[in-house]
Design a binder for these strands. Sequence first.
DNA 1: ATGCAACTTCAAGTTAACTTTAAGTCAAGA
DNA 2: TCTTGACTTAAAGTTAACTTGAAGTTGCAT
Lengths: 136, 136
Amino acid sequence: MRTIDIAQLAKKSGIPASTLRYYEEKNMIRSIGRNGLKRVYDEYVLEQLQFIALGQRAGFSLQDIQSMLVTKGGFEVNRDMLSQRAEGIAREVKQLKAIQRCLEHAAKCTAERHSECPKFQRLLSVAAKDAARKRK
Amino acid sequence: MRTIDIAQLAKKSGIPASTLRYYEEKNMIRSIGRNGLKRVYDEYVLEQLQFIALGQRAGFSLQDIQSMLVTKGGFEVNRDMLSQRAEGIAREVKQLKAIQRCLEHAAKCTAERHSECPKFQRLLSVAAKDAARKRK
DNA sequence: ATGCAACTTCAAGTTAACTTTAAGTCAAGA
DNA sequence: TCTTGACTTAAAGTTAACTTGAAGTTGCAT
C-alpha cells in the first residue's frame, strides 16, 4: 500500500491542499493517518479524485458524488443515476450546439442590430424556451 | 409603443417578478415608468429577457450580458466575445460527449467495481485532465 | 537551540444569482 | 370607509464549493 502526503497529492492531482482538506471534511476522501501533523493518504485517493472530477464535469453535485463513493476505497455507482445523467448530457449537448449556431450566426450576421435579424430572433426564442425548461 | 406591467411580464417571460426587479436593479432591463406603484415596461423587454436567457445558457455571466445590452432598448453584441464563446461551447460539447460515453459505459459495464475496469479508467483520466484544464 | 517553511484547525469570507422577509403603499371593490 | 390583494423597498438570507485568515504545531536544517 503506497502512501502519499498532502503536498504530493495536491501536486499530482492538481487540486489545492485547501480543497483536499475540504473534501476530507466532507467525507469525499479519507486520509489514513498522519506523519506528524501532515495528513497521509493512500494512493488510491488519486483515482477517487479523478472520479470526483469526472462527476463534477458531468454535472453531479459533491453530495451526489459522495453517495457514489465507497468509503473503504474506490467507488461504486448507481447505474440509474448514470444513465439518467448521460441522457441529460445528451440533451444539454443538443442545446449547446443550437446556442453555438446562434452565437456563430450573431458573430457574423450583418444586420445592424441583432434584434432585427429574423434568424437570430428564431434562435433566440428557442433558447429562451430551453432556459424556461431549465428553471422548472 | 406597447407597454406591459410587471405581473404580465413575469407571466409572459416565465421569470419571477423578484428576478425582474433584481434585473432592473442591476440595469439589465429598464422600466419606463410607473402606474401607481407598479413598474411599467415597454414590450421589447421581453426580447431583452430572451437575450439574457440565451446569454446565460451560453455560459455568460449577467455582467457579460449587461455589457452587450444597449440600454435604449434591444441589444448589440461584441462579435469577438460571441465567437470565442461559440468555440468554448464546441469544446464543451466534445468533453460532454466524452463524459456521456463514460457514464454510459459505467452504467452498463459488468465489472464489479468501476475502479477495476480499464476502459472506465481510461475515460476517467481523460475527464480528470479536462477538469484540470478548466480550473486554470 | 533556534528559525522557518509547511503543515494544522476553526471560523469566517467569497461569489453569483437570486429569494425571502418585513414593513409599507396603493387602487379598487363591498 | 374598510379590506384586500398586488404591488413596493431595503436588507438580509440562501446555496455550493471553495478560499482565506489567524493562530498554533511540527520536523528539519542551521
